[in-house]
């Protein structure tokens, strides 16, 4: 691990200012992803701004009937919150489908959104990777690509976003709240938060350098049946090959997003009009324009079948 200097921030504005002031600074909260990447020297911050002391660890009701989730609320606490379990079941389900009990006790809401990909070539510092070393090439395109993205891909990167929580947040139309280095606040709809890889796969979100996530807000509850179904290589503690987050109403209308198939949680609102017509019609629209490799082409029928299972579960 590269040496770094360290400070504990006292307020969100101080944290954002510190991160903008010191070149190569990074925020650390749970650290479950960052520390791992620092050991491998994939992340090499010269300065760490520890934000765990900021009072951003509560979940509060909003005036419009939703919830405001502090950036530092741990995944365990978010999944276990009685309001989340009752009104946003898809979020609770997505959280407990991810990682392990130990990791969920450390991992935070904001950190979960900002997880880096688990592409094996991103992790392998002996191989080219445009996300790790911009311009060096993509080893996954000609390599082992079974876990990789099938929609929204580019010639520069076919990595997936690893989060389960973010897929539920996308279905729930969450909003990411931030503090910028100058102290100004910003609200970013989750639909606009992530970027497709394009030619700059190393830039994963629209956050500016030093911009600190302070909270994630949820609109008022949608009602309906909440389902999160994750397909993976083992029954627990593995990343998704394909996952489906869905909120389905009694009349068959609803909304859904996929995990494990793209550089971001994958939602196509236009495809949701097809939900009452079933999984096949919906999946066809949702995955239109897919670009697969021989190794990950299985994800297209798998996504359709997983969606069919989710719709059946929602009807039951």
């Amino acid at each position: 691990m590269k040496a770094f200097t360290y400070e504990k921030a006292r307020t969100p504005a101080d944290a954002a200012a510190a991160a903008a002031r010191v070149p190569g600074a990074k925020f650390v909260a749970g650290g479950t992803n960052l520390l791992d990447l620092m050991k491998l020297e994939i992340e090499t911050p010269a300065h760490l701004v520890d934000i765990n002391g900021l009072a951003l660890d509560t979940i509060e009701a909003t005036p419009d009937g939703g919830l405001r989730i502090g950036a530092l609320v741990r995944n365990t606490d978010l999944a276990a919150d009685a309001r989340v379990r009752r009104d946003y079941g898809v979020l609770s389900r997505a959280l407990v489908a991810g990682a392990s009990g130990q990791l969920r006790n450390m991992a935070t809401t904001a950190g979960n959104l900002l997880q880096r990909t688990r592409c094996p070539y991103f992790y392998d510092t002996n191989q080219p990777c445009n996300k790790r070393v911009p311009g060096s090439g993509c080893s996954a395109l000609g390599g082992y690509s079974r876990q990789h993205a099938v929609v929204g891909v580019s010639d520069a990167c076919i990595a997936t976003h690893p989060s389960d929580m973010a897929v539920a947040m996308r279905v729930l139309d969450a909003t990411v709240e931030t503090t910028q280095p100058g102290g100004a606040a910003r609200r970013i709809p989750i639909a606009d938060f992530y970027r497709l890889p394009g030619n700059t796969p190393h830039i994963e979100t629209v956050l500016a350098p030093g911009e600190l996530i302070t909270a994630v807000t949820l609109p008022k509850p949608l009602g309906g049946r909440h389902v999160y179904r994750k397909v993976r290589d083992r029954a627990s503690y593995a990343f998704a090959l394909v996952s489906v987050a869905a909120v389905v109403q009694r009349d068959g209308a609803g909304r859904l997003a996929l995990g494990g198939v793209a550089h971001m949680p994958w939602r196509v609102e236009a495809a949701e009009a097809s939900l009452p017509r079933g999984a096949q019609a919906t999946a066809a629209q949702l995955l239109a324009g897919a670009r697969t490799t021989p190794e990950n082409a299985y994800k297209l029928p798998l996504a359709e079948r997983t969606l069919a299972a989710v719709l059946e579960q929602a009807r039951s």
Binding site: A3, A46, V133
Partner: peptide
């Protein structure tokens, strides 16, 4: 060699351990 670009693009780590 593989990470030289990144090392050059990013500010150097502190010279001595903190």
């Amino acid at each position: 060699c593989g990470t030289l670009d990144v090392a050059q693009a990013q500010p150097a780590a502190p010279a001595s351990p903190t």
